[in-house]
Nucleic acid binder design. Structure first.
Lengths: 245, 245
DNA sequence: CAGTGGTCTAGACCACTGC
DNA sequence: CAGTGGTCTAGACCACTGC
């Protein structure tokens, strides 16, 4: 058993189980824990770190749900031997791109604020005579168009203007306005580009696009945003990690 | 507060937290709990059901992770008001289709068992000179082709034959052989069909297809299966529910 | 201020696996 | 059989929210 050398800082504002989960995750990623390797038992790890077993287990639960660890009753816990892929988070494309060190550019090709069309009203479960923002944006990275995004946002939000949308992600602007998106339903499919889409995205008409329709709700459970995004299939995929329940 | 009327059976082999989670989920789906409605507090619900708070919380955790409930510290827990969509599970397409009451038909268009190509060997992290099954299947539902699936499966498994693959899902056959797939990494994208694919799937060449590449590992953490699937974009999408961590 | 969810403790009993 | 993870109890203290 190599020295895993986990530590926790009991004075940190970061919860203990988060500290432990991060520590194990780091050990997996830098190879101190090899793929397929067995971990010490929950009880042993808890004792080493002077944590209660539920706290230790809470840490390992996170990693099991992420698909990094596999547990078997009566046997033990080990690192997954198969390929490990980071799954999509609930973040905006903008955050994903900046997070991976690239610089996205955004062009707002359409912006309006007015009465919601019946279908949008229905999707966002808005009361009659509600207003929504309707925004179409073209996002590029490294000068290459990547995505054409059409969104509807409920309510009246001071921080949403075309100028701000050109330098921020939509989710970042909403966070700035005190709106915290917590749950999103996404549906991912495929289509072929028509002439207009192809022109904007810099591809041949008829080439493949990934489609994503999403509706996102805030921490009050209210639907806030819905949209349909198109991505160039040659430069974008959605990655998901699934764990059997 | 309407009568939620949850019950638990302490003699059932089903864990208490599962019973509670199923009960709340049922109440949401049949409308006894309306969208956006506040639940009683964890402590109150635990007391009503004579459960400890951790057990109650474990039940609610499941529903929060599924995107059905939203919690806010200092405030309470409520049903999500936005649209609720069932997310993809780690099941085979076959199970998904039979689970929703449809009858899939499978045609095995290619089947072999032999040495693994270097790329497959690498993806499945197989030792040198390993053998794999290589299977290509065309799946239809209601007489309409839906999916063209190419898979590689590690090892030697008595239950895998072309005849059995025509009447069972791959994951079902693996389960029958004692192999329990627990974690899968999937990458979802788009492409356009070439002439051969279009012919098999019954679409016009150049029409949009959803692509899915997947590698799945068993409960020992070993990579067992990898594959590339193509779906007709006009009849298939992947649904995901994301929850902010 | 009272009430909520977030975190944590220190146990218990059990089913299951591998020897 | 000893060891593992799965489930469950009965609390504790805290940060945060809305009044």
């Amino acid at each position: 058993m190599p020295s895993l050398d986990l530590r926790v800082d009991r004075n940190s504002p970061v919860p203990l189980y988060r500290q432990v989960a991060s520590g194990i995750e780091a050990a997996i990623h830098d190879g101190r824990l090899a793929r397929g390797q067995r971990l010490e038992s929950e009880l042993a790890l808890a004792a080493t770190l002077r944590l209660s077993r539920p706290t230790m287990r809470q840490a390992m639960d996170e990693l099991v749900r992420q698909g990094l660890l596999v547990r078997k009753r009566g046997v033990g816990t080990q690192v997954v031997a198969g390929p490990i892929r980071r799954a999509i988070d609930l973040t905006s494309l903008f955050d994903d791109l900046t997070g991976s060190g690239r610089t996205p550019a955004t062009e707002v090709t359409s912006f309006s604020h007015g009465p919601a069309a019946p279908q949008i009203q229905d999707t966002l479960q808005l009361p009659p005579r509600s207003t929504v923002y309707h925004v179409i944006r073209l996002r590029s990275v490294g000068g290459e168009p990547l995505s054409l995004m059409e969104n509807w946002i409920a309510g009246t939000i001071p921080g949403i203007t075309p100028a701000l949308l050109e330098v921020n992600g939509l989710y970042g602007l909403l966070r700035g306005a005190g709106i915290n998106l917590r749950v999103a339903s996404q549906s991912i499919g495929a289509t072929t580009s028509d002439a207009r889409q192809a022109g904007l995205l810099g591809v041949t008409p008829g080439s493949a696009l990934v489609t994503m329709q999403r509706t996102a709700s805030d921490d009050n459970g209210r639907a806030i945003e819905t949209g349909r995004h198109l991505y160039r299939a040659d430069s974008y995929t959605f990655d998901v990690t699934l764990v059997q329940r």
